[in-house]
Computed example of a mutant assay.
Amino acid sequence: MDISHGHEGSRYRARASSELISSDDMIYVAGHRGMVGSAVWRRLAAQGFDRLIGATSSELDLRRAEAVEEFFAANKPDVVVLAAAKVGGILANATYPADFLSDNLRIQLNVMDAALRHGVRRLLFLGSSCIYPKHAPQPIPESALLTGPLEQTNDGYAIAKIAGIMQVQAIRRQHNVPWISAMPTNLYGPGDNFDLKFSHVLPAMLRKFHDAKVEARHNVTLWGSGTPRREFLHVDDLAAASVFLLQHYNEAEHINIGSGVDVAISDLAGEVRDAVGYDGHIDWDVTMPDGTPRKLLDVSRLTGMGWKPEISLGDGVAATYRWFLDHPEARRG
């Protein structure tokens, strides 16, 4: 368990009405060893929040209500960032839909119920852009939620995340606490999952091109047609947005987090291939699913508050590949 010790102070301090989060707060980052949680932890620490607490999955199984209750009773956080989740790409979601639904529902319910019982004042629930209908208007506004059928390949995960939004909204109405939800677009960066069977599209591409380069293969096969369009956000930008929202956002409606720019998967492949330095040919396996034709978030509410991302796709992919090279353990699987 990782706990950053600072001055203690009273758990129930008087606050200015406009102050949503303070450097005095004890902040629990659920999922602090994952790609998202670790980025949020780094950002909080960089901005002077030094009372941070986290527990690994081996130390605390968030699917077990009793264990979560004991953790909150012992540590009494003021603020929670709920970044813990069971995540995976198209194949993983399509193969294990019941696991993705059940595990994520349990994690969310256990953390939010315990947080409410133990007086957590501020909570940020991080979901996913897969909550939106498969054929939602583009770019996708927050109001598109529950207006059409979901993409079937990840509907179990999406339903769990929709339930998380609903839970935050219900708790706000019933208990009048400033809890919020944010829905990030496709994320990538240090700490990503590069397993070829279960990773998302960008890290899977990076791994495939790297392996082909090392093995001197002349071609790489990628799934689908390459025509769908996707939006990507570096996880450090997501972390910056998350802290910004904790400091400034207090509305019941969830808010989108993204770059506001999308790219064809075929063009993404070119960016990743260039970053890796692979000069072979790309073959597209059109027998494999493309997923949603396009998924671009409307981020006008967030940018209207004064926040915008800072890391371009090219710079972010190059930095991610450098991290991948520096961490051989990321190449397992």
Rank of each mutant, 00 (worst) to 15 (best):
H7E: 14
D2Y: 13
G48E: 07
A16W: 12
E69P: 08
H7S: 15
A16Q: 13
F49I: 06
K76M: 13
I21Q: 02
S38H: 11
V40T: 00
G54K: 03
V36N: 04
W41K: 00
A14E: 15
R13V: 12
E19M: 09
M26K: 15
F49A: 11
P77N: 10
D78H: 10
V79Y: 05
Y12M: 12
N75V: 00
D24Q: 15
L44W: 00
A45T: 12
S18Y: 12
E66H: 09
D61E: 10
D78P: 03
E19K: 08
R13L: 15
Y12A: 11
G31C: 05
A55V: 08
V79D: 02
I3Y: 03
I27V: 14
E8F: 11
V36G: 02
S17F: 11
V40Y: 05
V81G: 01
A30I: 03
H7Y: 02
Q47R: 15
I27M: 01
S57L: 09
L52S: 01
M35K: 04
M35Q: 04
F72S: 05
A30W: 01
A16I: 10
L60G: 10
M35R: 00
S4A: 14
S18W: 12
F72D: 06
S10C: 07
F71L: 08
G54W: 03
V68R: 04
M1S: 13
E59N: 03
N75T: 10
A14M: 15
D78V: 02
H32K: 05
S23K: 15
L52W: 04
K76C: 11
D78I: 05
F71Y: 11
S38I: 03
V81S: 08
A46L: 08
E19I: 06
I53P: 02
S22C: 11
V40A: 01
I27T: 11
E59Q: 13
M1G: 12
T56V: 02
R15W: 08
D61K: 08
V36R: 08
V80A: 07
S23N: 14
G9E: 02
S10V: 06
A16M: 13
R64Y: 00
R43H: 12
T56Q: 06
A67E: 14
F49P: 01
